[in-house]
Design a protein around this nucleic acid. Structure first.
Length: 284
DNA sequence: CGCGCCTCCTGTGTGC
DNA sequence: TGCACACAGGAGGCGC
């Protein structure tokens, strides 16, 4: 499940492979994969054919490819998306959704996505920062991320702290896995009310978010199965370093208590019952 | 307008 | 062996 570290790994790999190359052809094999491009596949193809990719950028879990036209290709991997570089003669993947070939005849760029939660679209005039993702907050690895603004905005919310970490308009790039990992490190239960956390507690939590993301980037992202592989086709291995996520029934690496699993926001959350006690009844 | 629930999708695993 | 169903979850949309 690609979160910021996995997407950053993909970005770095793609930047080396596609920067400066000119698109020769575009094939859309599944309409759902360009559903965010509301003007349809013919327009999608027309905007991209003959264009040169200038760079590969990222904000949170979104990627975009600025083009020489001033437009940009926006990409989101969703749950199972991959952007793969493949030689033209490589057999089509079962879930190949979009193919780009280049005028230099070199490797193709393929968007492969089993569950089609991800997708590509073209943002007209969006080379600098596409309007379509302007609502996404900066991510904590961004040098312009404003720590104190984040602290203030999180404390002003009337919600639970894990929901806040997953709110991409507050802080981007954090998904279910790294939210659980950061909360474990900060010794906070995800249901703690944001408006009852102290400023220092939120700053500590942010530091843990940053640490866990940075460590995962170094490791090349997390992967639990064959669904996610980076642009070079290799799985990440940060999953060996997880302390909470997916560890139900296993001992906490800090205190030995058995890690629990709870349903939260219709998905699984993992935490240590001793290090991360549930909040008491909500006070007002 | 803030908050939180629902839905999209498909392959895998599990229980009967 | 086969069928039904739970599960994985990012993010937009919508209802309250």
């Amino acid at each position: 499940m690609p979160e910021l570290p996995e997407v950053e790994t993909v970005r770095q790999g793609l930047a080396k492979w596609v920067t400066g190359r000119t698109i020769k052809t575009v094939e859309v094999h599944h309409p759902r994969s360009i559903r965010r491009h509301v003007t349809g596949d013919a327009h999608f193809i027309a905007l991209l054919t003959g264009r040169t990719i200038a760079d590969v950028s990222r904000r949170g879990k979104y990627l975009w490819f600025p083009l020489d036209s001033g437009d940009a290709i926006i990409g989101h991997l969703g749950m199972s998306g991959q952007l793969l570089m493949q030689p033209a003669e490589a057999e089509d993947e079962k879930h190949l959704r979009i193919r780009f070939t280049f005028t230099d005849g070199g490797p193709e760029l393929r968007f492969v996505d089993q569950r089609t939660f991800g997708g590509l679209s073209v943002s007209e005039g969006g080379a600098e920062l596409p309007d379509e993702i302007a609502h996404i907050a900066r991510d904590p690895m961004d040098p312009l991320f404003d720590d104190e603004l984040f602290v203030a905005r999180l404390r002003a919310k009337h919600t639970e702290v894990k929901r806040a970490l997953l709110d991409q308009t507050l802080i981007s790039g954090v998904g279910n896995i790294y939210a659980d990992e950061a909360l474990w490190r900060a010794q906070l239960h995800g249901a703690r009310p944001t408006d009852q956390l102290t400023r220092p507690a939120v700053r500590r939590l942010l530091a843990h978010v940053r640490d866990v993301l940075a460590e995962a980037i170094v490791a090349g992202g997390t992967s639990f199965d064959e669904l996610y592989v980076n642009v070079n086709g290799e799985s990440g291995y940060f999953d060996r370093s997880l302390n909470a996520y997916g560890r139900e029934g296993e001992p906490c690496h800090r205190c030995g208590t058995v890690i629990r699993r709870e349903q939260f926001m219709n998905r699984s959350s993992f935490s240590c019952p001793r290090c991360q006690p549930r909040p008491r009844a909500i006070r007002r």
